[in-house]
């Protein structure tokens, strides 16, 4: 299979992984289905030294299909929400006035809470003069921790069906990182809160895109987000050869490096369908990913 590595050849000294500082690399995209998880997995499998993989796409976590970790711990993650102690409440309405998320209503001698609306800011507990609120919990999902057969540390979040708020769960996944030499963060699609929470604090962000107008449109938005967050970034162009070269010209014009081009290949697509990482069907591709991670480490 043919592919083109755009990064200059890494020299022998740089290839010594010990010289690369520990780093967190986020893999994001804007548009969904461009190959974030495939690229994130390929990087994790190609990196030297201790590696940790965080699947922050908590709405649809899929990296486990490729990395096949053995999960040794599963934690429930919940948010603190108010529960009313009816006999203490005097219906003053201060909690309702404090809450900007409409999670509490008081009318006459009735008080109701809507736990699904609660953002867990804690304001209602602080303003209640009667100490009439106690801490209840809303389960938002689970965090699972494990290790893959190759010794890659693995953490993933899984949002509870019906739960709207992904960001607190993404924070919980990131909080469980042990800061290995290389931390790979598989981010959710989109460009709003969940994607931003996932890419924040990364040392580098790889944007996986495809050479179509959709890919370019969403890439433009995502580079704007990363500029605001001050995260350096570059592009991995997936399914190169399909579509056109407008996106490449745009990257060139904006000075955004295209680190790697992965051509559309039925072999890769078929392996993906079965949960086989692309680096296992193509050894050259694996070398390319090893060089890529050294390149962005500099």
């Amino acid at each position: 299979m043919h592919f083109e590595v755009v990064v200059p050849e890494a020299d022998e000294e740089a290839a010594d992984a010990a010289e690369i500082d520990p780093m967190k690399v986020a893999i994001a995209s804007g548009k969904g289905g461009t190959g974030k998880t495939s690229v994130a997995v390929a990087l994790a499998l190609s990196a030297q030294g201790s590696v940790e993989f965080l699947d922050c796409d908590v709405e649809e976590p899929n990296a486990h299909f490729f990395l096949k970790p053995e999960i040794r711990l599963c934690e429930d993650i919940s948010l603190e929400v108010p529960v009313v102690i009816q006999e203490r409440c005097n219906y003053c309405g201060k909690c309702r006035d404090m809450c900007r998320f409409n999670a509490i209503t008081v009318f006459g001698e009735t008080i109701m809470t809507f736990p699904d609306m609660c953002h867990s800011c804690g304001g209602c507990f602080l303003v209640c003069p009667q100490e009439a609120l106690e801490v209840g919990r809303r389960l938002i999902g689970t965090v699972e921790l494990g290790t893959t057969g190759r010794g890659i540390g693995f953490v993933q979040g899984r949002l509870r069906i019906g739960e709207a708020m992904a960001p607190p769960l993404i924070r919980a996944v990131k909080a469980r990182s042990t800061d290995s030499r290389t931390v790979i963060i598989d981010c959710p699609p989109g460009t709003s809160c969940p994607a931003m929470v996932a890419v924040r604090d990364a040392d580098y962000c790889l944007l996986v895109t495809e050479p179509t107008p959709f890919g370019l449109h969403d890439l433009k938005i995502m580079t704007g987000v990363l500029k605001r967050l001050k995260v350096s970034h570059g592009v991995v162009l997936n399914r190169a050869g399909l579509g056109d070269d407008t996106l490449e010209h745009w990257c060139l014009d904006k000075g955004i490096p295209i680190h790697l081009k992965i051509p559309f290949s039925r072999k890769i697509a078929e392996a993906y369908a079965k949960g086989i990482p692309m680096t296992e069907v193509d050894k050259d591709l694996r070398d390319a990913f090893t060089r890529l991670i050294l390149e962005i480490g500099k």
Binding site: F65, I161, A164, G190, A273
Partner: peptide, 28 residues
């Protein structure tokens, strides 16, 4: 609709008469 199953998807479900799920033949 948006991808995922979180906040924007839940918002988009309100009032819908039918969901058409577009899927692909992969484990994911």
């Amino acid at each position: 609709g948006p991808p995922g199953i979180g906040c924007p998807v839940i918002a988009s479900l309100s009032g819908a008469d039918m969901v058409l799920i577009v899927t692909e033949p992969t484990l994911s």
